[in-house]
Amino acid sequence: MYIVFYFFVFSLSQVPGSSSPRPYTSPWALRLAQRETGNSPSFPQEQDQTHKGGQGMAEDMELELEFTEDLQLTDVMRHRAQSLQQKGQKRQDGERLLLPYEAVYRLDFNEQELSFSHWNVSIKGPGRLSVTGISQLWTPDLTNLMTRQLLEPSGQFWRSAGDPEDAPIKCLEADIQEFGERIADLAKVRKVMYFLLAFKDGAEKDSIKCSLVFKKDVEA
C-alpha cells in the first residue's frame, strides 16, 4: 500500500495582479539564496559587531610598558657606593656610581618587534624626572656600571612650581623622541633593559608615573 503525502504551503497574501497564491519561502531559505547569489542584505547588528571588533584590533596593536624599580639592583648599587665611602676607596676609572636621589628601573619586553609611539609621564607637584638608559646588557652584581654604557640623550621631564595641575608636563621633545626610538631599536634584541631614574627638584617616587607606549610591528 502506497501512501503519498503532498504538502503545499501557501502564503496568506496574494501576488498583486494575480489570483493565484504565491509559494511561501522561509526567511532562512531566502537568506541562503541571497548569499549564494552574492546579494546579501545588510545586517546592522553584524556591521556593528564588525566595527567594534576593528576598534579592539586597533587597541591590540599598541603596547604600554611601565618603568618598574628593580629593588635588588638598586640595593647592590647603593651598597657599592657606601662601601667605597666607608673604606675611603676611589671608584674605578670611568665607573658610574648611583647617586642618593637615583634608583635602578627596568622595562621587560614580552614582545620585541616594536616601534616607538609616545611617552606617558605624570608628575604631581613641582619636580624633575630624569630617565637615563643603559646601552649594554648589564647588572651590578656582575660588573660595575661605566659611564660609557649610558645612552644619550636622556629623557627630561619636569613640572615647575605654580604650574596648574592639568598643565602638560614639560620636556625636551626632540630628545625624548630620539630616546624612545632608540629604546624600541634595542628592544628588538633584548628581553629586558635597565635605566637610571633620578628624582630631583622636589620630585618623589610616589608622585611620578612613567611608561612608554609602542606600536606592534606587523609583518607584511
Results as ranks from 00 to 15, higher is better:
residue 4 V to M: 09
residue 4 V to H: 14
residue 4 V to S: 10
residue 8 F to A: 11
residue 10 F to A: 13
residue 12 L to G: 13
residue 14 Q to F: 09
residue 17 G to R: 00
residue 17 G to K: 01
residue 24 Y to T: 00
residue 24 Y to V: 00
residue 25 T to W: 02
residue 26 S to L: 15
residue 30 L to N: 12
residue 34 Q to N: 14
residue 39 N to S: 09
residue 41 P to W: 15
residue 43 F to N: 08
residue 45 Q to N: 13
residue 50 T to C: 02
residue 50 T to Q: 09
residue 53 G to P: 04
residue 55 Q to L: 12
residue 56 G to Q: 13
residue 62 E to K: 13
residue 68 T to M: 02
residue 69 E to I: 14
residue 69 E to F: 07
residue 71 L to D: 11
residue 73 L to K: 05
residue 74 T to D: 01
residue 75 D to E: 15
residue 84 L to Y: 08
residue 86 Q to S: 14
residue 87 K to A: 12
residue 88 G to Q: 00
residue 91 R to Y: 12
residue 91 R to V: 15
residue 95 E to D: 12
residue 98 L to C: 06
residue 100 P to W: 06
residue 111 E to N: 10
residue 111 E to M: 14
residue 112 Q to T: 04
residue 116 F to S: 07
residue 118 H to W: 05
residue 119 W to F: 06
residue 121 V to S: 09
residue 122 S to C: 01
residue 122 S to D: 04
residue 129 L to W: 08
residue 136 Q to L: 04
residue 140 P to A: 00
residue 140 P to C: 01
residue 140 P to T: 00
residue 141 D to Y: 02
residue 143 T to A: 11
residue 144 N to F: 15
residue 149 Q to E: 04
residue 149 Q to F: 02
residue 150 L to F: 03
residue 153 P to V: 10
residue 159 R to A: 02
residue 162 G to A: 07
residue 162 G to M: 09
residue 166 D to N: 14
residue 168 P to M: 03
residue 171 C to N: 07
residue 173 E to H: 07
residue 176 I to L: 14
residue 180 G to I: 06
residue 180 G to Y: 11
residue 180 G to M: 08
residue 183 I to D: 02
residue 184 A to G: 00
residue 185 D to E: 13
residue 185 D to F: 05
residue 187 A to C: 05
residue 189 V to P: 01
residue 191 K to T: 02
residue 192 V to N: 15
residue 196 L to K: 03
residue 199 F to T: 06
residue 203 A to R: 08
residue 204 E to V: 13
residue 205 K to T: 03
residue 205 K to I: 01
residue 213 V to F: 08
residue 213 V to H: 08
residue 217 D to L: 07
residue 219 E to Y: 06
residue 219 E to D: 11
residue 220 A to I: 09
